[in-house]
């Protein structure tokens, strides 16, 4: 059975995008090790409400590691110190009694803070809206088995498609670059025959939108890949570069 732990929690509190934020410190007592990190914040929020204080605002939804809504920069890592997991899948047994745990929002010009630990990630939607799709309407599609697709290609596309759009890559990158996110989407479409048709148009549109929204330039530090909760590979970034250069050369 997991032990209970007590620790100090430093949480970033900020009223709004323009407001000045600061850390607030909370003492957490006897938290069971099988509590998830977000459940630990629930416990804290319950305490705050009981003291008639406003609870800490953070994004979360599915709590199964798939919706990509939870964020949090915990002790210097997006989604905390665990690898291949989101914050909602982080359990308190990973921490030790007496630890100080620092919780910050994603910090990037592309993701302005809304309140406390909640940030605005609509930039990701905008990038996808610029070209992250196959331009087809509903209905009248050829049979699903009409075009065979190699198992290895399908698997590689799936690896890229596993991206949950949480923004940890941007949060981890010292350049605030969104290349891992964009490249995962570009790769999924570029690998599959149905997406290849408009691959050139897509990659140009998505990169242009990404640049326009003020994300940084990739310098291949690989921090994104290391912190990605879905272990999306930077080989996707190489593919994005390749697709982009090819597309521009053709112009």
């Amino acid at each position: 059975m997991d032990k209970n732990i007590s620790f100090t929690l430093k949480v970033w509190r900020q009223r709004g995008p323009k407001a000045k934020g600061a850390f607030e410190t909370y003492q957490m007592k006897d938290i069971p090790g099988d509590t998830s990190f977000l459940e630990m914040l629930d416990i804290l929020n319950e305490q705050l409400v009981n003291e008639n204080k406003e609870p800490i605002v953070f994004d979360h939804d599915c709590r199964e590691g798939i919706c990509g809504m939870c964020s949090l920069y915990v002790n210097g890592h997006p989604h905390g110190p665990a690898t291949g997991a989101t914050t909602c899948q982080l359990y308190m047994r990973r921490f030790k009694d007496g630890d100080t745990i620092t919780v910050e929002p994603w910090r990037s010009a592309g993701f302005p803070v809304i309140r406390d630990l909640m940030v605005d990630r609509t930039a990701f939607d905008k990038i996808q809206q610029a070209g992250g799709y196959v331009s087809i309407n509903t209905g009248g599609m050829p049979d699903a088995n009409a075009i065979p697709i190699g198992k290895d290609v399908a698997e590689e596309a799936m690896d890229a498609a596993a991206c949950i759009g949480c923004g940890a890559c941007v949060a981890a990158c010292k350049n605030g670059s969104a290349m891992l996110f964009v490249s995962a989407k570009v790769s999924q479409f570029a690998l599959l025959p149905q997406g290849k048709v408009e691959a050139k148009k897509r990659v140009k549109a998505m990169v242009a939108k990404m640049d326009e929204l003020g994300f940084g330039n990739c310098t291949n530090t690989r921090a994104c890949e290391a912190e990605c909760p879905k272990c999306v590979s930077i080989s996707n970034i190489a593919r994005l570069n390749r697709e982009f250069i090819k597309a521009k050369m053709k112009d």
């Binding site: 196959v134 087809i136 209905g139 399908a154 999924q188 479409f189 149905q194």
Partner: peptide, 13 residues
């Protein structure tokens, strides 16, 4: 299924 494949949903193969 046809629609999803056309959208590049990477179903297992």
């Amino acid at each position: 299924i046809d629609q999803c494949v056309a959208q590049c949903v990477p179903f297992a193969r």
